[in-house]
């Protein structure tokens, strides 16, 4: 099957074609899923090299799972988001040097710079990222998947291995925290003029 003919194929069909040895499917899936995996990892980890490592590991696991993939059991993108999220959480925990309740503990404030000082130096997107980095990891993860990746709550619940109500709670708390962090900067970043 030529590459152009694959643009309308579902991820599941492409993965089946990949497992059947179709080279065009390998290219199509890489271009479709690679940026997604990298994007989530980058938002979670804030480090390009680490995000590339995590996304590469997730893709490698996907290629190796392809021959045994059972159609209809899970969406390929959901599976990939889940692997990326778990790898990111593992890295964050290792960086912190121990097991902590990531939902209960917020990022400690940087004594050298306040949130206001950081936001003064950033544009709107970067300001949002800076505020996201202040959230507890599970809230951050849920908000990224819901509002930046555009996923539905049931899919996020599957990715995070929690219930839909827990997702709604995490995103609500995350949004409330973001409003507090970003509200003071609205005028400076031009939102009050719109």
């Amino acid at each position: 099957m030529p590459y152009d003919a694959m643009s309308d194929s579902s991820d599941e069909d492409l993965l089946a074609a990949y497992a059947a040895g179709e080279p065009a499917a390998a290219r199509a899936l890489t271009l479709r899923l690679g940026p997604k995996a990298f994007g989530v990892a980058m938002r979670m980890l804030k480090d390009r090299a680490e995000a590339e490592d995590v996304a590469q590991e997730a893709l490698l696991r996907l290629w190796r799972a392809a021959p045994g993939w059972r159609t209809g059991e899970a969406k390929v993108s959901t599976w990939l988001y889940r692997v990326v999220s778990n790898l990111c959480i593992d890295r964050i925990r290792k960086a912190r040097g121990g097991h902590v309740d990531l939902d209960a503990v917020a990022e400690p404030p940087d004594p050298a710079r306040s949130v206001e000082q950081e936001l003064q130096e950033t544009a709107r997107g970067a300001a949002l990222q800076a505020a996201l980095d202040r959230l507890p990891e599970r809230q951050k993860q849920a908000v990224i998947l819901r509002h930046l990746e555009g996923l539905a709550n049931p899919e996020i619940a599957e990715i995070m291995d929690i219930g839909v109500r827990a997702v709604e709670s995490l995103t609500a708390r995350g949004r409330k925290a973001l409003e507090g962090l970003l509200g003071a900067r609205r005028a400076e970043l031009g939102y009050d003029d719109e």
Binding site: P35, G39, R124, G125, L128, Q129, H147, L148, G150, Y191
Partner: peptide, 14 residues
């Protein structure tokens, strides 16, 4: 909303 729109527009690209 405007913050998330800005975040979506500036998605990290590999």
């Amino acid at each position: 909303g405007p913050w998330f729109e800005a975040g979506r527009a500036e998605a990290p690209a590999p």
